[in-house]
Design a protein around this nucleic acid. Structure first.
Length: 231
DNA sequence: GACCAGGCACATC
DNA sequence: GATGTGCATGGT
């Protein structure tokens, strides 16, 4: 991937990123993402959570579980309209049913319905394959790669962008690939680190970086008030 | 009732 | 390449 380490050894931002992680890890308990019992549940959840609160995703997943349908094979066999009805609580359910079916079709045809069969596929190639599936964009693909398959890919989202821009580490309008590169080029390529770091950013973003921020209580407060360079 | 939530595809300029 | 819009439920 475009994960070339920075040439310069003395990169002040690298230290800050590690400092931010340590501060978050000290303040919050390990987030233990992704909350799921199987890889396919992670992948399905990654699509269901697009622009959707997680509580609504849980309702949809629970319904699939209650019907014993949370497997690649069963979901692949299910009709799109039936699937849409079941995942209704997650919102945009017709759109997501179509996207899920596209993903399940891909998984079935390319990897015989087994995510574990992707193990030997080079990361860049696998990411490209996922991105070619209807309904799978950068964040969904990376969530699957990191949280379902355990590949060293840093996932970024709106919380990541909000938290880092509030702390003046990146511009507010930074694009997905640039923001991902911002992390990946400065951190060791470690799935466990990427996993916990992103989850912690979501945690701190939810609690302190909402539309009405609670910066006064934010554990990253030490980074505010001009201590960081304005990028 | 408005606004938001762990995005993406598509149309239009 | 940048910007705007539809998708839709459930919580605040």
């Amino acid at each position: 991937m475009r994960y070339r380490p920075l040439k310069t050894r003395r990169d002040p931002i690298r230290g800050r990123l590690i400092q931010v992680y340590l501060e978050l890890a000290r303040h919050f308990s390990p987030q233990k993402w992704w909350p799921a019992e199987s890889a396919i549940e992670v992948a399905v959840g990654a699509i269901l959570t697009q622009n959707t609160a997680w509580t609504n995703v849980e309702r949809a997943l629970d319904r699939l579980k209650a019907h014993g349908l949370l497997s690649a094979k069963r979901l692949h066999q299910l009709s799109e309209s039936r699937l849409a009805t079941l995942i209704r609580p997650s919102g945009t359910f017709r759109v997501k049913a179509r996207r899920l079916k596209a993903f399940l079709r891909f998984l079935q045809e390319r990897y015989a319905g087994e995510l574990s069969r992707t193990a030997r596929v080079p990361l860049e190639q696998l990411r490209g394959e996922l991105l070619s599936v209807h309904g799978i964009g950068p964040e969904t693909a990376d969530s699957m790669l990191l949280y379902a398959i355990g590949r060293p890919v840093f996932v970024v989202d709106q919380y990541t962008r909000r938290v880092l821009s509030r702390h003046r580490l990146v511009r507010r309008d930074i694009g997905y690939d640039d923001l991902q590169q911002f992390f990946a080029s400065r951190l060791p390529s470690d799935p466990a680190l990427f996993n916990d770091y992103h989850a912690l950013l979501v945690k701190v973003g939810k609690e302190y970086c909402r539309r009405v921020p609670r910066c006064d209580r934010c554990p990253l407060r030490f980074d505010l008030h001009g201590r960081l360079p304005r990028l």
